[in-house]
Amino acid sequence: MHIAEGFLPQSHAVAWTVASAPFVVHGVKQLNTQMREHPDTRMLAAAAGAFSFFLSALKIPSVTGSSSHPTGVAIGAVLFRPPIMAITGVIVLFFQAILLAHGGLTTLGANAFSMAIVGPWAGYGAYRLVRSSTGSLWSGAFAAAVVANLATYITTSVQLGMAFPEADGGVLASIATFLGIFAITQIPLAIIEGLLTAMVVTWLSSYSPAEMKELAVL
């Protein structure tokens, strides 16, 4: 759910950038410490970022006829934890803006807030909750992707609703309109990405248990 370049008025663009900044700074600090203490995990973080970018360039089947791309937010959050996702997510968004013309620079802050901060934390929370209560990795990963997707989509709708309030109903009516329109594509997409994520995470734990132990998933 990228907000395109130029979509947000300047005050909103600045405000969302300010809102995302502390999370990103925290992510950079964590990254710095990690690089100093475990320089060997550096390539792992790079692999996480490169993998998120790869997912956004990948087309997955979508029921609305057009194919859409997965956000990859949940896989990243489950495998690499949300703080690392804050910084790799911002870099991925930057690459997407420059290399794919997807998203933008003035909307980078708003997109980072929904996709590098809210999405990963919500997805990770759902994963921990479902996995500890059901004991199933499959269900945990499925829940992570569905919740991360929906949280991202709701955040984006709120951001757009606040930027474009309706003349009569104001911000709330506008948020409802955006939620309604995006629901057509985002809800099926969330379920498909949920299935995809669950498959990937369970297959990974049988094909490549060493890596999954290293990442403390197993």
């Binding site: 299935l195 995809l196 890596e211």
Partner: peptide, 27 residues
């Protein structure tokens, strides 16, 4: 759709495993 979702999952898994191996070799 069914088969396509499954193939996408298998493909993604394969790419992920490969990216980890690549990263390790670079390291």
């Amino acid at each position: 759709l069914r088969r396509s979702v499954r193939s996408a999952g298998l493909g993604t898994t394969a790419v992920f495993i490969r990216s980890m191996h690549r990263a390790k070799r670079l390291q």
